[in-house]
Nucleic acid binder design. Sequence first.
DNA 1: GAATTAAATGAACGCTTGTTTTATTAGCTG
DNA 2: CAGCTAATAAAACAAGCGTTCATTTAATTC
Lengths: 202, 202
Amino acid sequence: MARTTGSDGGRTEAAIREAAVDLFARRGYEAVTTRQIAAAVGVQAAALYRYFPTKEDLLFDLMRRHMEALIASWEAKRPDDPDPVARLSAFVDNHIRFHVERRHSTHVSNMELRSLSKERLSQVLRLRTAYEKELRAILRDGAESRRLTVDDVGLTAMAIIQMITGVIVWFRPGERLSVEEVARTYLAMTLRLTAAQEAREN
Amino acid sequence: MARTTGSDGGRTEAAIREAAVDLFARRGYEAVTTRQIAAAVGVQAAALYRYFPTKEDLLFDLMRRHMEALIASWEAKRPDDPDPVARLSAFVDNHIRFHVERRHSTHVSNMELRSLSKERLSQVLRLRTAYEKELRAILRDGAESRRLTVDDVGLTAMAIIQMITGVIVWFRPGERLSVEEVARTYLAMTLRLTAAQEAREN
DNA sequence: GAATTAAATGAACGCTTGTTTTATTAGCTG
DNA sequence: CAGCTAATAAAACAAGCGTTCATTTAATTC
C-alpha cells in the first residue's frame, strides 16, 4: 500500500500534533516512540518525517506554538486600564483559563525543556521570559504606587506563576469545581498575597 | 578484570543512589541510561544489578526515601503549639528548607511519577497525600478558629504547596538571595495569602 | 488521459537499550 | 594459606529506537 484514499497533508499534520501533545503530556517525551505517535494518528512512523524532520523538531514546534499562543492570549486580553490591581486581576484570570484549557501542552512546555537542544531551549525560554516580564512589570507598578505589597518583585512573580500554573496538576474540568470558581478563588488568593488595595475614587 | 581493589558494597550502593538522583534530575529518568549511571559511579552497568533489580526499582527507591525523609523532617519540627498560624509558619519554613536542600530528589519525585508502575505510583502518592494532609488540617483549624481566611481548604493547600515547592525551579543557593531571605519572604506571602491573624493575648 | 505531484507504505539500517550470564578477583574467615 | 563469598568486569542478549529509502498509490494538472 501507499497513499490512502482521502488522505490530506494538512489534516495529517494537525493530527500528528494533537497525538504528540497528548502522548508527550501523559508519558513524557523520552518515553514516547515515533511509532506510538504514528499509531495514534493511524499511519506508519515514516509518515511523520514528511511533516517534521525529527522527533525533537516536533517537540519544539509544540512548545513554540504553546508559548506564542499564551502571549497572544494575554495581548488580546490585556486591559487598557493602567491600574495595577486591574491588570494583575486580568493577568491571573487569563493565565488560569488558558492553562486549564491547554493542560496537555502546558505540561509538555513545562516538563520537557531538557529534551531541547541548547539553541531551541533558549528560544523557548526567551518567549517564557517575555511573558513573565509582563507580570513583573505589573508588580513593580503596583509596588511603586503602593497598591500592592511586594517584598521582592522577581520572587513574587515566580511564586504567583508557580501557584497559578499549578492548577493544571490537580484541576479536572467537570469535577467538584468549575473553571469560574477556580479562577475566582485563585484571584482572591493572589490579591491577598499581594495585599492589593481597592481602587479609591478621589 | 573483576573485583577492584578497595571496592565496598555499601559505598557503591550509596554512590549509585547519588549518581542516579543527579542524572535523573538533570536529564530525566527515561533519558538516562544504566551505562551513564554506572559511568558516573566508575563501574560497569552490570554492577548496578547487584544492588537494584531493575532501573525502575532504583527510581522507586529514590522516591520512597525522599518522601519518607520529608515526612520525617516535618515530624521532627512540627510544633506542639496548637496555634494554626504557628503551625502554618513551621510547615512553610520546614518545607522550603527541605526542598532547597534536596532540589534534585524533589525534582525526581515530582517529575518522574509517570515512570512508576501502578502499584508503586500509588505507594508514593500515598506518602505524598499523607504529607499534604498535614497542611490541610492546619488550614481547616485556622479557618474554623477564624485565624486564617481559607475559601477552599483543598484548593488553598494545593496553591500553597505549588508555590512553596516552586522555589526549587529558580532558586540557586549562593546567588542573589539566601535561604533565610527566601524562606522569610515565602512565609510572609503565605501568611498574607491566608490573611493570617496575629495571636492575641486574651 | 498522460504526466506530475502529494501522501503514505513497508522494509531495512545502524545503534542503543535494559538486562543476563559467565568468569574472575579482593578481601575475609578459620 | 586454603576456602569462601562479595564485588565486579566483560561479553552477550533480544528488543526496540529514531530515521532513511525505494516504492506505490491517490489526487491534481495540463
